[in-house]
Amino acid sequence: MRRIVLFLPFLVFLVLGVVFYFLLGKDTQYMPSALIGQPVPSFQLVTLEGEQVKQTSDLPKGSYLINFWGTWCPSCHVEHPYLMTLAEQGVTIVGIDYKDQQAAAMQWLRDKGNPYTLVLMDELGQFGLDMGVTGAPETFVINAEGKIAYRLQGVLNAQSWQVIKAYL
């Protein structure tokens, strides 16, 4: 009995070692969205061209991406070319111009190309709030049932696409 007790610290060390080993290399910043499995919150947003008001029922049928971006966001510059690649591959992307200026955003799409099937303006960030967005860029995967399946915080690139693809 005494002997076993003496080995207790070593056992604790082993257990902690295993736990810590599996936590190595994990992204501590990763936070799943609180909205996973829920439908897209209802909204009324104006299109970037400022002509039409769109609501939840105007969203695409089938699976698609919702991408929050803004001309003020440096990472969105990095992300944009990859969004163009995805659009060419036939991925449907809805763009939300998040807390941005209309003129600047239109210029951006003219200069860099428009990967979005629909661009909506969220000037005050209210829709972003309802989606639980903490910044830009953020990308949500909406599955064929219209439910939010995945949320990516940060740049969408070839690497993160490998993960996202599976949720579409």
């Binding site: 936070m31 799943p32 609180a34 709030l129 309802d130 639980g132 903490t134």
Partner: peptide, 8 residues
């Protein structure tokens, strides 16, 4: 807040 950002 919890509905949007979770218990975090």
């Amino acid at each position: 807040m919890v509905a949007r950002y979770g218990t975090f």
